[in-house]
């Protein structure tokens, strides 16, 4: 968890943030958080806990009803969404809320054009993003002809094309098969290694167990816990409060507790190592 060193220079700071929708639904009720430059964070919690509302505050789509959100020390109420968008790329849960162009290529170049890049740069960035997400063959295809999983990749490509410092992915694994998830995982880890701040919003416990980010658990508009994946995902009380589930591997080790096995195991390869050591001699 980021340590409060009294400075506002952390990349993302939320200071007692409340947000109430016009229909009266109180989605955030006193959120405090700090996310440093280059951190990798997963926000988890039950449907309706406020996760999507929270990330919409980071790119300024929503402004707090009460409290402050600061990006690089500047309050989101003091800058336009367009200015923030250069820094913060948000990929929505449902790609259909985001896509509108006639071809995949146009979709990806849209934001770049709006940011005023020259044609040569735009072409380079579009090619780069198409390659990165394995979309080259769909360059001239309408996004709406593609499968749900492919449309999600187009949405992601169009955000990554403008190279934002902060990348937020809302439920990136929905509709993705095992292979694509594995690629997405490697890809996210790579983005993070390149120094980007990556924030994912997800229910996918197994995916998070494999990615090993810092986890923030939300429940009813508040963050109820922040910590390493291994600590949070193996804490049954917390996990239940947030309607998340224990990873499958953790469930196995919970059942083996009486045999003196460690409790805090989330990874299948680590689990195999532990079991190999204990059972190896008993064959």
């Amino acid at each position: 968890m980021p340590i409060d060193n009294g400075s506002d220079e952390q990349m993302i700071v939320m200071d007692d943030v409340y947000f109430t929708y016009p229909n009266g639904v109180e989605a955030l009720m006193g959120v405090n958080l700090k996310i440093e430059d280059g951190e990798f964070v997963a926000i988890m919690g039950q449907n309706g806990a406020g996760k999507t509302t929270l990330v919409k505050h980071i790119n300024g789509l929503l402004k707090p009803t009460k409290g402050r959100v600061l990006i690089d020390g500047v309050e989101t109420t003091k800058v336009s969404v367009a200015t923030l968008a250069r820094k913060v790329g948000l990929v929505f849960q449902n790609p259909d809320h985001q896509l509108f162009s006639e071809t995949v290529e146009e979709e990806i170049s849209f934001a770049l054009k709006n940011f005023g890049y020259d044609e040569k740069t735009i072409k380079k960035r579009v090619d780069w993003a198409l390659n990165l997400l394995d979309l080259n063959e769909y360059r001239k295809v309408s996004p709406f002809m593609l499968s749900g999983g492919e449309r999600k990749r187009v949405a992601l490509a169009s955000v990554l094309a403008w190279d934002p410092k902060i990348v937020i992915l809302d439920e990136p694994t929905i509709g993705q098969d095992y292979r694509q998830k594995e690629r997405l995982r490697q890809f996210i880890v790579q983005l993070n290694r390149q120094g980007k701040t990556v924030i994912i919003v997800t229910h996918d416990v197994e995916f998070v167990a494999e990615c090993n980010p810092t986890i923030m658990l939300m429940r009813q508009g508040r963050i109820i816990a922040t910590g390493e994946a291994r600590e949070i995902l193996t804490n049954e009380t917390l996990v239940n409060q947030a309607s998340v589930a224990l990873p499958e591997i953790t469930k196995i080790f919970k059942g083996l507790e009486d045999f003196g096995f460690p409790r805090k195991v989330i990874d299948v390869y680590e689990a195999a190592d532990i079991l190999y050591e204990r059972l190896g001699g008993q064959r």
Binding site: Y178, I252, L275
Partner: peptide
């Protein structure tokens, strides 16, 4: 690239390393 259950995957990894559990499990 089927999303094999973690319990089944664990069984497979252990088997490759010479440890046999009774039959492949489908759940934790």
């Amino acid at each position: 690239g089927v999303g094999i259950p973690k319990a089944t995957l664990l069984y497979k990894i252990l088997k490759l390393r010479g440890i046999s559990l009774n039959g492949p499990p489908l759940s934790s």
